[in-house]
Design a protein around this nucleic acid. Structure first.
Length: 459
RNA sequence: GGCGGUAUCGUCUAGGGGACUAGGACGGAGCCCUCUCAAGGCUCAAACACGGGUUCGAAUCCCGUUACCGCUACCA
């Protein structure tokens, strides 16, 4: 996200690389989630996607180069030996660092063992000194090299370890800015040493904060949604998601919060990048989504909402297209009081011809007196039915004067009617409901309510 | 354990020596608007982790402590 904003802001390129050197963790499923997530959010990448595993030959060539230059060495220690040493060190409460025993092997020994087919890994020989860089978000960071062991760069099966592959690829792809999660800060000195050993100039490094779950830990499966695109099925708009995500770890300064993507681009600056991890707050995401729902014109919302409307059985592509203007005005009416797309669909039900269910609590509250309610509703129906034209001022006059005649507050008329029309106690203004529903359906809904009330009488 | 990073309301954050009785937003409480619910407007509760410095002056700079997070793999 921040990479993308940075690239778009400063006219750079946003390159996508799938780091799939770990077969166990990198599945079709996981890479697809990346593409879907980025696409959904509208974060487009430049050039072809690069798959790290395809750079195998180059990774091996770079390891070979380091070996030839004497900057790396073969290590014949087995995993079991290393594990034992590590366990010993921990039990003695010492910190374990590889003791470089294989670096002391004579060239002849190395030759002999390699020739005999002993398996080995390639380790990078960490030089003396300190490794430091000026991080774009953190400022100067330094690591004493003595704290870094001679790390493995090539496995015994000849495949590269992450730190080598990354540097090799970044050089190949001419990466100028490495912007990533700050969990990579401690990998950075290792990578810098590889850059230097390979004789290449360093890119800039920017370590951005991570996002944590409510428990303060790294976001993971147990926090709910596993992939960003899962929020699509939760009824979240991509514009809201991207806005919300951007605010986790970045601020444009001042009080700016609700923004469109292009505004974020122009406002983006690394100065606004946060150093602290952010906690994902679903409540705020939903609020943000409500804001974006209100701000987005119905015509733009329509393609996103329609599939859900159809799935809910309210209509088909054809029936909706046939009444497009009406449909858009319905969306316009509902979007302001919705937080997710699901809210819109739920509220849209009464405006379509299908059956509606009456909210139980609402019935108890608004239709407590069934005879009285029936009487009120049939009078309301008669007044509405005789209206010369179906417009808001006429309806309002008819219903308000009815309330006045009876000496009751307008709400005493509106609320039972609202329940009859929508089955709910909440809806847009009652005249908007009547108007949007249309005369025929509105009168029918009242008839259905009267039937319901009659059926219930005496029970 | 070692190393590194971070630390402002419950949460996201503004703040970069005096404008801070610390601002905004979400969430919470309440009021207004009002036919209901949203939206909107208003009000309230709510934070500079702690301790030392530096300075005339510190939320802001430095050092320690603590807490949290990360790395410490033939994971990425």
């Amino acid at each position: 996200m921040f990479n993308w904003l940075y690239a778009r802001k400063y006219g750079g390129q946003f390159l996508l690389r799938i780091e799939d050197t770990d077969k166990a963790r990198s599945t079709d499923e996981s890479t697809r989630a990346i593409f879907e997530g980025l696409t959904w959010l509208g974060l487009d990448w430049d050039n072809e996607v690069v798959y790290q595993a395809q750079g195998l030959a180059r990774h091996q060539r770079d390891a070979r180069l380091l070996l030839d230059r004497g900057l790396a060495y073969r290590c014949f220690c087995t995993q079991a030996e290393l594990d034992a040493q590590r366990a010993g060190a921990t039990s003695r409460k010492e910190s374990f660092r590889y003791d470089r025993r294989c670096d002391r092997l004579s060239p002849a020994d190395v030759q002999r063992r390699a020739g005999a087919g002993d398996s080995f890994v390639v380790r990078f020989r960490v030089p003396d000194g300190i490794t430091a860089w000026d991080d774009v978000v953190h400022g100067p960071i330094a690591f004493p090299n003595t704290d870094i062991e001679d790390f493995v760069i090539l496995r015994s099966d000849g495949t590269p370890i992450y730190n080598l592959a990354v540097v090799s690829d970044d050089i190949e792809m001419r990466i100028t800015l490495v912007m990533r999660g700050d969990d990579h800060i401690s990998n950075t000195p290792k990578q810098i040493m590889i850059y230097q050993a390979l004789g290449h100039t360093l890119p800039k490094f920017a370590h951005v904060p991570m996002i944590h779950g409510l428990d303060g830990k790294k976001l993971s499966k147990r926090h709910g949604a596993t992939a960003v695109a899962d929020y699509r099925t939760e009824g979240i708009l991509p514009s809201a998601m991207v806005n919300f995500l951007a605010l986790m770890g970045w601020s444009p300064g001042g009080d700016r919060e609700v923004m469109a993507l292009d505004e974020m681009i122009s406002l983006f600056s690394v100065d606004g990048l946060q150093k602290k991890a952010a906690v994902f707050d679903t409540k705020k995401l939903e609020w943000m989504n409500g804001q974006h729902l209100s701000l987005t014109p119905a015509a733009e919302l329509e393609p996103r909402v329609t599939p859900d409307i159809i799935a809910a059985g309210l209509g088909s592509t054809e029936t909706l297209a046939a009444r497009r203007d009406w449909y858009l005005s319905l969306l316009e009416l509902l979007k302001v009081r919705a937080r997710t797309v699901h809210d819109i669909v739920r509220q849209a039900i009464p405006y379509f011809s299908g059956p509606i269910a009456y909210d139980e609590e609402a019935v108890v509250k608004q239709w407590k007196d069934r005879h009285g309610s029936s009487e009120t509703l049939s009078t309301v129906r008669a007044r509405l039915a005789e209206l010369p034209s179906w417009d808001a001022p006429a309806m309002e006059h008819a219903l308000r004067s009815l309330a006045e005649e009876r000496g009751v507050a307008a709400g005493k008329v509106f609320q039972p009617l609202r329940l009859a029309l929508t089955g709910m106690t909440v809806s847009p203004g009652i005249f908007d409901v009547l108007l949007t529903m249309g005369r025929d359906l509105a009168l029918r809904r009242i008839d259905e309510a009267l039937d319901y009330l009659r059926a219930g009488t005496g029970s």
